[in-house]
């Protein structure tokens, strides 16, 4: 886990006694039928979930587990077979709930013949925003996702990562209270992934609620406060990430500047207490950390080979 995310998680507000539910599902289920009404797939079995204000909630599961179906039901893109999906206490079929939602779909389904500015301006107009507000907001978001250099280029010329960034900007155009992210880090390089994760945490710190789904476990572990694990359309696990992942019978000790004698002393202490030593060696950093460090150093001293 990186330093920034650790710090952010430590600073996360502890859940208040009666948290306000932003998203609620009540035995929400979806069955796909064919043209003749015959049952094809039970994509989601009755699901009860609550997402509270100010948390990052992750839906986790392999492909086809019903994550995206849940999100589509919440947004009203699909109609539930049974049960209800409530967002801000409104039914998911109520269009007015969308005023306060930002949605980044799995792939950024944007109009490829528009450029970045036009795209954001267009979505701004869908929120009925007046021209000056749109102009200001468009520029802010383009700066935020770092696409100022390409804002006049049609989206069809964009790389996957750039499309993803403009997709994110599009989702934030209305300064939403609830941000729904479907696989936010797919198609992003390590830098982009890190930036996306930092941004998600920043949004949470601004008091927004984030609902994301992903099958990339590392991403979920890094940012989510609470997760739900879905498998074959069924809820398998629900809870806080830290408590779910805590391994009670294992103790981890990390220290800096220990001599060999100190290490052997530690081994002895463990033996004396009938503990089992699992490992005692120098940790290797993650590839992500290594990569990010190299990039950072290259930016500081262009041309030189990083040490």
């Amino acid at each position: 886990m990186s330093a920034t995310t650790e710090a952010a998680q430590a600073a996360a507000p502890s859940t208040p006694a009666a948290p306000e539910a932003i998203v609620q599902t009540r035995s929400l289920s979806k069955t796909y039928r064919d043209f003749w009404g015959r049952q094809k797939v039970r994509a989601l079995k009755p699901l009860d979930l609550e997402v509270h204000r100010g948390e990052i909630f992750g839906l986790l599961g392999p492909n086809g587990s019903g994550k995206t179906t849940t999100i589509k039901l919440l947004l009203g893109l699909l109609f539930p077979t049974t049960g209800k999906a409530l967002v801000f206490g409104k039914d998911s079929s109520d269009v007015s709930k969308n005023e306060r939602i930002g949605y980044l779909p799995e792939e950024s389904y944007l109009y490829r013949f528009l450029n970045a500015e036009e795209t954001l301006d267009f979505y701004g107009r869908l929120f009925d925003m007046p021209a000056e507000v749109r102009k200001r907001r468009t520029q802010e978001l383009i700066d935020m996702v770092g696409l100022n250099w390409a804002k006049r280029r049609q989206l069809k010329e964009y790389s996957k990562g750039m499309t993803r960034r403009i997709g994110l900007a599009q989702a934030l155009i209305n300064d939403p209270e609830l941000i729904v992210l479907d696989e936010p880090t797919t198609g992003l390089d390590p830098i982009g992934t890190r930036e996306m994760k930092d941004l998600i945490i920043k949004l949470r710190d601004e008091g927004k609620t984030v609902l994301m789904c992903s099958h990339l476990l590392a991403d979920v572990q890094d940012v989510c406060d609470r997760i739900a694990i879905l498998y074959q359309g069924e809820l398998k696990e629900l809870g806080r990430v830290d408590s779910l992942l805590k391994v009670d019978e294992v103790t981890e000790v990390r220290a800096r500047g220990l001599s060999e004698e100190a290490k052997s002393e530690i081994r002895e202490v463990i033996q004396r207490h009938q503990g089992e030593l699992l490992s005692l060696d120098n940790p290797s950093t993650t590839l992500e950390e290594l990569f990010l460090r190299i990039v950072r150093e290259s930016e500081e001293r262009p041309g030189a080979r990083p040490q």
Partner: peptide, 15 residues
């Protein structure tokens, strides 16, 4: 088909 409609109907756009 291209699913661009997803980004439209998830805005406060009336049908």
């Amino acid at each position: 088909k291209s699913r661009t409609i997803y980004t439209i109907v998830t805005k406060p756009v009336r049908p």
